[in-house]
Amino acid sequence: MTEQKIQLGEQSILCKADESLLDALLREQVDISHSCHQGACQSCLLRSLDGAPPIEAQHGLKEGLKQQNYFLACLCYPQHAMRIAYRHHSDFMTHGTVSAKQALNAETLLLTLDLDEALDYYAGQFVNLRRDDGLSRSYSIANNRIHSKQLSFHIRRLAGGRFSAWAHEDLNLGDRIAVSEPQGLCYYLPDKPDSPLLLIGTGSGLAPLAGIISEALHQGHRGDIYLYHGSSDLNGLYWVEEMQALAEAHANFHYHPCISSGEPPEHVFAGRANDVAFSQLSDLKGWRVYLCGHPDMVNNTKRQAFLKGASLADIYADAFHVASGSLD
């Protein structure tokens, strides 16, 4: 492989061999939104103007976008010269106004936005939130579909994290923020109301899972629903009473808060959420599995769930990749 010439409007850039197009653009100080560098958040979406982009660079995109030669810059290693364009800015579909901020625990904020327009989303999908200076990050929708004009998020503060610390400290009631089109394939589908569901999340990974559970119960899901929410210690758990109350109200919903270090109190399990889950469940044939949170947990658990019999097509996952550092 050699260098490839990339034409973006008036500007031309050389993308080095073994360098992603996103890295090349950032090296040349091109202002392109990005966040995860892993093909998960879809914020680095670009369009190829002269034919199909490398197929790997379209991983996870919707069919319609693929057909229009959209691709993700962070997954794109150009094999020949390309002419590319920014996507339409209309991708940020609407704006929201901060209508509530509440601490779920010491590190997690429940943020509620009232949207200008109703969004069509599935419980469990995520949106990109963008502040005025262009910094954008992905956050999962924590509510079900009944509130299509109101979205809530669980935002975990990372030490030195630019967006999360800002959301915790400087974002005020009444402030406005841009909201992208809902994305992601990790959501509740009502087509198999009798199949058991297994949901495993770490930290703020509870957000999309809570949305999925609420949607499933609302739709009258009949199969058993098992939630394992994990954190390193008790301080990282939240919504414990709410989830316990939900479990009392619905016989088919089973809630297991887990901590991986320290002595757990009653009703809390010792160990990592995925390990606790697999010590209790032996055969996942016919199950739907939802995994959200720390990328390592998501990858390892996907493999465990598959080896326990879940079909790959029935495993839905959102790894909360961060630009650098780790979620722990």
């Binding site: 990858n299 390892n300 493999r303 598959f306 080896l307 790959l312 097509a313």
Partner: peptide
Amino acid sequence: VDIFYRHVLNDYRINRFFDKSDMD
């Protein structure tokens, strides 16, 4: 594909060639 891949990942003789990173 599910059946085949599950066999391969369960086989200690060869599963070391298949790393854990991106199952999809």
